[in-house]
Amino acid sequence: MNTISAPVIGICGGGNLAHAMAGWLGTRGLRVNILTRKPDQWAKTLSTIFPNGTTRHASLGHISNHPEILKDCNLVLVAVPRFGIREVCHRIKPYLHREQGLAIVPGTPEVMEMAEDPSWTSTVSLMGIYKVPLICRTQEYGHSVSILGSRPFNRIWVAPGNNAEYWSAMLEALFDTPLAHLSSPWPFLLTNSNPLLHPSRCMSLFRHYREGMFYERQFLFY
């Protein structure tokens, strides 16, 4: 297995977080392969705008819709909406192997289900990251992303028997974020960020709405 300082990273997804992680890791000189449904819309160089306003350019590795590009990755990060996690993991499973790490970002109840399935626990080192490591927004799909901030502290759960210290050290180094260990994956089930956040944000924006009202500007949700 490659050293912690220079792993090859696979990222599954094409949303804000996938862009940000690709830019963050790519600008650190790491090789990043992207598994996406829209490979033709990605450039080989991703412009990444950091919180201090500087722009750096990340050279990406393989960009494809075929999971074969994950074979040589030390760590695979799955950053897709929750409804797509099962489908994506099912697609990539035949191309994973026991020395790899598979992290769901952020962790969801699917991590719990997979950890109880011997066909998964014998295939890959399974883990979930409690919260997203980066605050971000895609500027131009496949071409540029703004990283607005990074999480100063995070938590990780690694399935039993999968060398939690090794994977925690790798992820701490990759994202410059101290990680505490979760003793179980239950927080992934009990903390539903979007179901709590989205209704309250909508209420704060539109609580005064009445039929026939029009708004003069387009609101930013976050």
Rank of each mutant, 00 (worst) to 15 (best):
T48V: 13
A79I: 01
I4K: 02
R201E: 12
I92S: 11
L25A: 07
S193W: 14
T121C: 10
G107F: 01
T191Q: 08
F219R: 08
S59T: 10
K71G: 10
I63Y: 07
F206G: 01
K38Y: 15
Q100G: 08
N16F: 09
N16R: 05
L77M: 06
P51N: 06
L196A: 12
R28D: 06
Y130G: 05
L148Q: 11
T27P: 03
R56P: 02
N194F: 15
L75P: 00
K71N: 15
L70E: 09
E216W: 07
N52S: 09
R210D: 02
C202D: 04
E113K: 09
N52Q: 09
G29M: 06
V158R: 10
T36P: 06
S144I: 00
S146K: 11
W24F: 13
P185Y: 02
W157S: 03
R210G: 06
G26F: 02
P160E: 10
V124K: 10
N65H: 13
M127H: 00
L220V: 11
C12D: 08
L35R: 03
M112R: 14
Y215P: 07
L17Y: 14
K44Q: 13
R31E: 14
I4A: 01
L171P: 01
P39V: 03
F206I: 08
C136T: 06
L220K: 15
A169P: 02
V132Q: 13
P199H: 08
S150I: 07
N74V: 06
V158N: 04
P109Q: 00
G15K: 01
H66T: 08
T54S: 11
T121F: 05
L35V: 06
F206P: 00
I129Y: 07
R98S: 15
H90Q: 15
T45P: 06
R210E: 09
S146H: 05
D117C: 07
N163D: 14
S200L: 05
P133L: 02
A173L: 10
P178E: 06
S200G: 08
W24T: 08
L25F: 00
A115H: 01
M1Y: 14
L35M: 06
S193T: 14
R91Y: 11
P133I: 00
S64N: 07
I147Q: 02
G10V: 09
R155A: 12
I156C: 05
M1C: 12
A103E: 12
L189K: 14
V32K: 01
D40Q: 15
G149R: 05
E116N: 15
R201L: 07
I129N: 12
M21Y: 04
N194C: 12
I147H: 05
L17V: 13
V32W: 02
L60P: 04
A159T: 13
N74I: 05
G101F: 12
T191D: 11
S183E: 14
M21V: 10
H62R: 14
R207V: 10
L30G: 08
L174D: 04
R155M: 13
E211I: 11
T48R: 04
Y95N: 13
E110Y: 13
I104H: 09
L196W: 15
E172Q: 14
P185L: 01
E165N: 11
R155Q: 14
W167C: 06
Q139S: 08
S184M: 12
L17N: 09
S64H: 09
S5Q: 07
W24L: 03
L189W: 14
L148K: 08
